[in-house]
Nucleic acid binder design. Sequence first.
RNA 1: GGCCCCUUGGUCAAGCGGUUAAGACGACGCCCUCUCACGGCGUAAUCAUGGGUUCGAUUCCCGUAGGGGUCACCA
Length: 550
Amino acid sequence: MDYPYLAELLFPDVKLTPEELESRYPARQLPEGAIVSRAAPSPTGFVHLGNIVQGLTSERLCHQSGGVFFLRIEDTDAKREVQGAVETLIEALKHYHILFDEGATVDGDIGPYGPYRQRQRAQIYHVYAKKLVAEGKAYPCFCTEEELDAMRNTQEARKDNFGYYGAYAVWRDRPMEDIKTELAAGKPWVLRFRSEGNIENKIKFTDLIKGNLELTENDVDHVLLKSDGIPTYHFAHAVDDHLMRTTHVVRGDEWLPSLPFHVQLFRALGFRLPKYAHIGPLMKMDGTSKRKLSKRKDPELALTFYQAQGYPVPAVLEYVLTILNSNFEDWRQANPDANLDDFKFSYKKMNPAGSLFDVDKLRDVSKNVISRMSADEVYALVLEWAKEFDVPFAAALEAEPDKARAAFAIGRGGKKPRKDLAIWSEAKSYMGFIFDALFAREDEIDPKFDKADVCAALTVFAQDYDPADEQSVWFDKIKAITDSLGYASDMKAYRADPAAFRGSVADVSMFLRVAVTGKLNSPDMYEVMRVLGRKTVLARIHALLETLER
RNA sequence: GGCCCCUUGGUCAAGCGGUUAAGACGACGCCCUCUCACGGCGUAAUCAUGGGUUCGAUUCCCGUAGGGGUCACCA
């Protein structure tokens, strides 16, 4: 077989040589130990947690080592691509602070190793495809979809391994005449790799996360170029990561089964194999069994889900970090105010197994992240969220920014900050009552209390309320009212013998809380009243009195 | 079905031949307390299984089971 002739027949327009490409994309000049890696998502319109997990790992590895982190768009599957998905993808990664040194941006590509969108690299792949054919390492295959289906059915019936190999690789050693005939007839073809592997052999491999692996050699002649001339993932991976001088490949461990093929490919192309880090999958409980989170079934995998719920970006990042590096939580406890970038990320601390996604844990992380924010930050972020997801709330926040900030400041800061906000979508029920526009009496005073007691308490309090009072004075007044009703102002005494009293200071406080906030639970009442101001406090108390007296 | 990976409480996990087997989330209880949070204290709960190696296995090796992944002209 005259392979160079076949190469010319298949790729008559390819004039560039691998050598020319090598010099166009020279080795990077980086210090020893610098890691070059990338995020390489495909634009399917669905940006998910996995993208963050993978991206954050790569990004940390690169930037901590003084290396380069770039974004490559894997848009080789035209059928699955969604309009505008590339932009969505880029924006989402940016929103989650996955920042690239080079690669695709909404304004085009940046960096000397581009283009960074695979469809724009078709010519480059063809250079190497031609080389492989000329060396007898790849060949055209004219099988139709039907023929391939039939092959699979046969294999199933015979209990053979699936795939295009051995006797099933019908175009592997076809005479030149057959190829020319099909070509002349204009039949579509794919380019297949000529595998020299044998499933009787094992290859040893060391993965950065999984450790020492023993894998079976690949004997399948996988597709390198699809019939539209665009490469499959495998071929693009080899060519791109070589030419872009990637040193480390971080990806999900669903790629492990194709690793032997990738090793063969790199060798056949004469490329040096990068280091690999295969991350275990994110799982969820489905009934009683675990399974990998699925794009189709699980809304919580989509980043839009977290945005809509109002999880702060750093909360999601911290949660991902707690999953990725087992020592992250300890570090965060020791350094509560440190910047995330200061955490020493290490692939050695990554778990080789998959982990279950845990919303409770995410919420807890988020509460802590938010508790560390200033009132101004919280205000800004809640507003940003509300503008998109709760317009009336946003309007209220913008109408009275100082009042809103004051409300968010209650219980914030200090050694024991409140930790009751986990997501922005809960902010309205948390403090929305401070705005008259959003105030509503959601909870009622337990009817077991004597109406006269309630009215008396509210009336007396209203007569004497002064926002200028110190908290102790304010509370002493409430206690005085409590005593005058025959309720217990000393909680210890009340708890010792509840039957001896008609109620307690807690109950009187509850009357006031319902009147002023419309709810049974709220942040510190003294502070709440000061934020509301005397006028509003009295108005709300009187409003409740009216409904009670009616 | 073939191939591969994984296996410490409900979840995330520390551990890397000798430990009372950390810690966090969650659950429950108590304390603090004007409510809810916060905080403090505490309780329950884990080495899948069989066989080796060893004076000694959660830790090393092999088998078994279970879970997961993958076997496309998708990535």
